[in-house]
């Protein structure tokens, strides 16, 4: 900007036209010409028709397929999703049929990981707990994407007072950490009395959206003044349709990356809330609840706490690794020539 406004102060020298006739050396300089066969002349700027053509997503996919980080995380996520949908395939013991006679018993045939204090099968509860965590993670991420995505995109694209208001609003929500905000919402009488997966989702969405809004806003701002958007408008496309057709698709990559990592952190947040006793109701089988229940006997029977914690960590880890892999694959800098 400064260059546009202030004239170059370096122009203090006289601008007497120097007759520039080129320099002629006193030395003799050999005139070398490479033989033509060494560097055959190609036509100017011809299209290389031999390469395979790929869209951005196809290109990213091709890169991803070769990345061990992606393969491992994708397989793990697939496993977790299948377990969440049909837990019965993996565990044949009812996680809710607990007999106090088995309280804190060790592993035995059919019960590979032993029993909890209440005499429930640890393995079975670990398998059945997947669904709650994944549901909260996925729906919170969806909610955050919808609210934060729309807010961020509108603020970034239209700017002006809308941007100012939305940015301040995001700042306000940012001032309260996710866990703290969710705790406050969850202890409201309305929420405390109706505990379910959905109250947890709402609480997390309410304080989780500003992050996605910021990322989206940044990505949209980066693209809104791109020449291709200007060109589309000059073709007669309305500003809103230019946003939908050109700006949003080009802004998706960073949002997807952050959403994937956020999904992991939302699962951790849910577990933390359940651990504190203000997340999911105890009737729902969840890793957070099980860890919470196991904490009293962590010193004499740590494996009861360990197994749900391991399942939780692996799930979160796979989403974060997926985000990392996507970040590398979708990096626009790597794609630009």
């Amino acid at each position: 900007m400064s260059e546009n406004l202030t004239p170059d102060k370096g122009t203090t020298e006289p601008v007497t036209p120097v007759t520039r006739q080129g320099k002629i050396s006193s030395r003799t300089i050999e005139h070398f010409v490479a033989p033509l066969e060494e560097t055959p002349l190609a036509a100017v700027d011809n299209v290389d028709e031999t390469t395979v053509s790929l869209s951005l997503w196809a290109d990213a996919w091709r890169n991803l397929r070769k990345q061990p980080l992606f393969i491992i995380s994708a397989l793990l996520i697939l496993l977790v999703v299948v377990v969440a949908i049909v837990p019965g395939l993996f565990a044949h013991v009812d996680p809710t049929s607990c007999t106090l006679a088995d309280s804190a018993e060790g592993p035995r045939s059919g019960h590979p990981l032993g029993f909890t204090l209440q005499g429930c099968d640890v393995y079975s509860r670990m398998i059945y707990g997947t669904r709650a965590s994944l549901t909260v993670g996925i729906f919170t991420t969806l909610g955050v994407l919808i609210i934060g995505g729309i807010m961020g995109a509108l603020a970034g694209y239209y700017g002006g007072w809308l941007d100012t208001i939305l940015a301040r609003l995001a700042d306000i929500f940012f001032a309260l950490p996710l866990i703290l905000g969710a705790i406050i919402i969850n202890q409201l009488p309305l929420f405390r009395d109706n505990k379910s997966v959905w109250t947890v989702v709402i609480a997390l969405v309410a304080f989780g959206w500003p992050q996605i809004a910021r990322i989206t806003r940044g990505a949209v701002i980066e693209n809104r003044n791109a020449d291709f958007v200007m060109a589309a408008k000059a073709l007669g496309l309305s500003p809103f349709r230019a946003l939908m057709k050109h700006v949003v698709p080009n802004s998706l990559a960073p949002i997807i990356v952050v959403a994937s990592i956020s999904l992991g952190t939302f699962i951790v947040a849910e577990a933390t809330l359940s651990f504190l006793g203000i997340g999911l109701p105890f009737s729902v089988i969840s890793w957070g609840n099980d860890i919470s229940a196991a904490q009293t006997q962590v010193r004499n029977n740590p494996s009861v706490l360990l197994w749900p914690a391991v399942a939780l960590s692996i799930t979160v880890l796979s989403f974060i690794m997926l985000g990392d892999a996507l970040r590398d694959a979708l990096d626009p800098k790597a794609r630009k020539r």
Binding site: G264, V268, A271, T272, F275, I291, Q295, V298, P302, L305, A309, L312, S313, I314, V316, L317, I320, M321, D324
Partner: peptide, 14 residues
């Protein structure tokens, strides 16, 4: 660092 991020604080704490 990935492992630390993935393991919840309360588990790490215990």
């Amino acid at each position: 660092s990935l492992v630390v991020i993935a393991v919840p604080t309360f588990v790490l704490g215990f």
